[in-house]
Write a protein that binds this DNA or RNA. Structure first.
Length: 197
DNA sequence: TTCTCGATTACCT
DNA sequence: GGTAATCGAGAAT
C-alpha cells in the first residue's frame, strides 16, 4: 500500500531492540531526551538510573530470582516490579541475556495525553505528573502485566531524541548501597525531575 | 513459618 | 522534617 504523503516525522525514528545491547550506564545516558509512550500516552524521558550485577544496590546483585527474572532476560524488554507494596517501577533491560543490567526510568516530561495522565494521577500539576518512578507508572498505566514485554512493540513506543541536550550525572536516589556510583542521569535544568540534580 | 525492610509517595506537624 | 500505607522477596528461625 502506498505510503501517505505526510510531513517529516517531528519525532526521531523508532528505537530498535539493539539500542539496549550496551551497558546500563551508556543506555541510561542515551535514553535522556527520547520519547516514551504507553498506549499513546507519555512524553520525554528526563531522568534515568543505571543498575547492573556488580552493583550492590541492584536487584540483580545476588543473582536471578523469580522477581528479577526479567532483568536476566533479553535486552530491550521491560522489567516492572512493585516497590514498597504500593508503587510500580519501570526498567528497561540492557546489555545481554543473562547479564542482569537495567535502566530505571525515574521521570518523564509529559507531552502527550496529559489529560489522561492527570485523570489517572488524580491531580493536574504537570510538574508532578511523572516526576518519580512510582508516579510515572501510575500516569502511564503501567503495572506488572507488562513485565517482560518488548519495548519495540505495543503498548510501548520509544522514539529517538529530537534534539541533543546537556546531560547531568550524579548519585542515585533512595538506595543505601552503591551510593558512590554516579549512575543517575538527567536532562540538565529540567523542571520535571523527581529531585533537582 | 515468621520477620524485616525496600530503586516510593502522600500527607502529617 | 517525620511517618503511615502495603506486600512480597529474601533472610532468619
Amino acid at each position: 500500500m502506498p505510503a501517505p504523503a505526510s510531513a517529516p516525522n517531528p519525532r526521531g525514528a523508532a528505537i530498535p531492540t539493539a539500542f539496549f545491547d550496551r551497558d546500563a550506564s551508556t543506555v541510561a545516558r542515551a535514553l535522556i531526551g527520547t520519547e516514551l509512550r504507553v498506549d499513546g500516552v507519555g512524553g520525554i524521558i528526563v531522568e534515568t538510573e543505571a543498575y547492573d550485577t556488580t552493583d550492590p544496590a541492584s536487584h540483580s546483585f545476588k543473582g536471578a530470582t523469580p522477581r528479577n527474572a526479567a532483568m536476566f532476560g533479553p535486552p530491550g524488554r521491560a522489567y516492572v516490579y512493585r516497590s514498597y507494596g504500593i508503587h510500580w517501577c519501570l526498567n528497561f533491560v540492557c546489555e545481554g541475556e543473562g547479564v542482569g543490567s537495567a535502566v530505571l526510568i525515574r521521570a518523564i516530561e509529559p507531552t502527550i495525553g496529559i489529560a489522561e495522565m492527570a485523570r489517572r494521577r488524580g491531580m493536574a500539576d504537570a510538574r508532578r505528573l511523572c516526576s518519580g518512578p512510582g508516579r510515572l507508572c501510575q500516569a502511564l498505566g503501567i503495572d506488572g502485566s507488562v513485565n517482560h514485554a518488548r519495548i519495540d512493540r505495543p503498548p510501548f513506543d520509544l522514539f529517538e531524541a529530537a534534539h541533543r541536550q546537556p546531560i547531568a550525572a550524579g548519585p542515585r536516589i533512595g538506595i543505601t548501597r552503591g551510593t558512590d556510583l554516579p549512575w543517575r542521569y538527567s536532562a540538565k535544568g529540567s523542571k520535571f525531575l523527581s529531585r533537582p540534580q
